[in-house]
Design a protein around this nucleic acid. Structure first.
Lengths: 195, 195
DNA sequence: CTGGACATGTAACAGGTTACATGATTCT
DNA sequence: AGAATCATGTAACCTGTTACATGTCCAG
């Protein structure tokens, strides 16, 4: 359900967007908040248009293939604002963490295997943290001349809520790194003791 | 895919389990790691039995309705251990966080609405943290005389990897709480300044 | 002229949710 | 008699992933 509101929100602005560009925006700006495949985005845009919450038009381009631009209708904008103003049913996001599930079976895997996984996890989280510490979107570069993308880029840089989101990503990554380092040290200390 | 391995892992032990009890174990022990509905668990158990990775048998009980006990076959145990030993494709769990998505649209919602959401989020996270700080499963109480559940309870209390998982949940909750308090303070300070 | 970025889609499948149906047993 | 817990399932639906198909335009 939330994906449709994300789309309505992005398309409620004064700048219409096409599916491909929305996908790029998802990937660069909110991939750690919400992710979606292109095929799902196209399907959802279709469904929203069928419901009358979006309208689309074809824009021909000289130097590139033409694209289908979507914008929210008044009804679509209202649906989005209603959602935004509603009380969320839950603040808990669905948890499906393969690494943690593997860790749950750690005693069946053995300390060496678990230690290996912790190293992989640490590598991933350090990369993740670095990518958010010096976050800067390249949307304007990738889509030169596209006002919607320039606007999105600017929002990502200047908007306080985007900054909140960025800060949380960094803090959570740091907490995970500290945790994993501690666990790994514990496992390795034991390994040395035995060897 | 991971749900099937979670089930195979739980049923690879010497104690067979029924779907209903597995659901209870999911909820009490690993709900923040992996969650699943009863209907999905039954469907998955069915599929795994059809593949020959599980076998089931009916156990009649005097005081309660009879139940279908599942256990992993040798092939099932092998499939589980293969998975456990394999290198995970990714350490990133899929992100779909409604609260963060709403925050992303914060400038369209306005500071008051966002502040309200932060308060809701804080309430949820504080509860969440408390529930993990004094974590103790009630499985043995809920299923008296069930050896599988007594075993699960003991593992949750004693297993080092379960302790790792618990610690991470607490640390992440604390990081989220600190972050949200800071953001909320920033929003409220601005509100006072204006008023 | 080939590969890559841009662009839009379809179809099939896998994974997850909701709603419904059924029934045993125990407790009040 | 009615509610609560234990217990198993089915069907429909929604959401998300994978694979495939098609085509434009530009740069090397």
């Amino acid at each position: 359900m939330s994906l449709s509101y994300a789309l309505l929100g992005l398309l409620s602005g004064d700048r219409p967007m096409n599916g491909y560009a929305i996908k790029a925006l998802f990937d660069e700006a909110i991939s750690h908040v919400w992710q979606a495949k292109l095929s799902q985005i196209y399907r959802e845009l279709d469904a929203l248009e069928a419901k009358g919450l979006l309208v689309s038009s074809i824009e021909e381009q000289r130097d590139r293939p033409s694209k289908r631009l979507y914008r929210a209708t008044e009804e679509g904008k209202k649906a989005f604002l209603d959602w935004l103003g509603s009380v969320p049913e839950s603040y808990a996001s669905p948890k499906r963490d393969e690494f943690m599930l593997r860790l749950f079976f750690g005693s069946l895997a053995g300390p060496e295997l678990v230690a290996r996984e912790f190293r992989g996890f640490l590598g991933h989280m350090r990369e993740h943290r670095a990518s958010f510490e010096n976050l800067h979107s390249h949307l304007a570069e990738r889509f030169p001349g596209d006002p919607a993308m320039e606007r999105a880029d600017r929002i990502c840089r200047e908007d306080r809520y985007c900054e909140f989101i960025r800060r949380r990503a960094v803090l959570l990554a740091e907490a995970s790194i500290a945790w994993a380092e501690e666990c790994l040290a514990e496992l390795e200390a034991e390994g040395d003791g035995r060897a």
